[in-house]
Design a protein around this nucleic acid. Sequence first.
DNA 1: AAGAGTGCCTGCGGGC
DNA 2: TGCCCGCAGGCACTCT
Length: 298
Amino acid sequence: MPELPEVEVVRRGLEPALTGATITSVDVRDERSLRRHDSVRGSFADGLTGRRIDSAVRRGKFLWFPLDSGEALVTHLGMSGQVLLREPGVDDRHTRIVFTIEHPRHGELRVNFADQRIFGGMAIDALVPTEDGYAGGYAGMTTALPTIPTQVAHIARDILDPAFDVPRVIDRIRLRRSVIKRALLDQTLISGIGNIYADEALWAAGVHGEQTASRMSRTRIAAVLDAVASVLDKALAEGGTSFDAQYVNVNGESGYFAHSLNAYGQAGRPCPRCGSPIVRAAFMNRSSHFCPVCQRRH
DNA sequence: AAGAGTGCCTGCGGGC
DNA sequence: TGCCCGCAGGCACTCT
């Protein structure tokens, strides 16, 4: 399940090949991958063909490519989405959309949007000014403009974003009546965190995910956010691949499942800190994994 | 308005 | 062997 580090690795992989490239053809094989595309903006293929891609920007798990038309190609990988950079003619399993692009230096390339479960998708969307006037997201080598696709505008900044406002986010979390893990997964509070990194960060901070957010001290929430940042940083340093078996980078290279995991998916295994068996419990129609000794609810 | 609940999807593995 | 079911879970949407 691609979360922030995996999406950032995809962004970094695509940036050099897509920036400055012109889209020469678009083949939509499965319309379900365009669920986020508003047909009011016209046909997806027509809106992209002939357009030049200016950069590759990410906020949380959303990725977008500003175009010379003033719009942007928005991408979300969902649960199983991949964007694969290929030589012309090369196909991939579960490819839903095929792009041919022409890059001034790299020549003709093929981009396959593959998605087994179709929770992800693509869309053309308008870019609107950001509310705070800061860059819309992270754009690597280029400086992101202070604009954001309309369908990403409600997504909060992620914790690796220089404009992420730590004290304000702590205040907002403490206003929540729900539990801390739910807050971490709420993309309108803090973006980029999914179930894997939520469990890992809570384990690292020694906090029970079902601790009521409003009953936690600012210091404790700050510690959780610190843990989130270091877990994401570590995953990024390892290429975003080590936490997730499903994930592949733009070259189709797979990660190493459970390589660096301390809690997620480790039910029954000893906690690396205290040796107690990690517990798996139902949470929000999914699972939570935690150490019952290191992560106590107060 | 926050928050709870639901549908969208396919592959895989366990149980029988 | 083969079938069924549960599970994986981010996001948009509806309802309260």
